[in-house]
Amino acid sequence: MKQSRFWAWLVFGVGAAYFLVPLIATFEFSLRMRRGYYSFDSYASVFSDPKFQQTFTYSAVIGLLSIIVGILIVVPAVYFVRLRMAWLRPYVEFLTLLPLIIPAIILVYGYIRLYNSSSIIPFTGSAVGTDILLTFAYVTLALPYMYRAVDTGMRTIDVQTLTEAAQIAGANTPQIIARIILPNILVAVLSGAFLTFAIVIGEFTIASLLNRPAFGPYLQNIGANRAYEPAALAIISFIITWGAMSMINLLSRFAPRTSARTD
């Protein structure tokens, strides 16, 4: 028994070292901008860069739009599939898994060739159009996570019974979704939202290939041209990801557990 604990600690220790050393090293490196002693100069340099502010804001706005579009698309679909169209379920699940099967670079390649300026829907023909395409691309990227979050949320509240109860009380379908279902799966939806944000905020491939001034391509550009700022940006990115994940953890404590169903 003691022996197994020794091995457990050893494995854990080696793992912890692998994961912590890069963080420590990056942080240490980010402080080395001024010769001779540690300073936060690299962070100051990053934050004062107008490009940083612009690209970050741009990515944050696109991220927010992706979250909204994602919710509008996923929530009604999950609701009706759970409620009355169970036969559609395997197909919908398969579709939501596709973004895990098809790499992002392939999707964007398809978009560029399909929706070019001379096509029927010329998304890439204008800046606004490309912004919209980027938003949709991010919705696609986050689809597996958003779907699973919402689906889990609906499973725990027993949509069927809640809907029937609301119908007896005289509510119509939009009212049921807006007033009954959505508030009850709010925590799940927000989890999906934060995960979407974490995925989208530093995304490089799609933004770069669509030529949008997003945070990911900015990061890459800084990495190619500066020495210490990339380390600072890596730390900042890590903190943003950590923040989004912590929000999900925090939210899960407020998840409703009203259902007697255990499946």
């Binding site: 990911g216 990061l219 990495g223 990115s237």
Partner: peptide
């Protein structure tokens, strides 16, 4: 989820 460009920097 910490993949991509920042991971390379790290």
């Amino acid at each position: 989820n910490f993949a991509g460009v920042p991971l390379a920097f790290a």
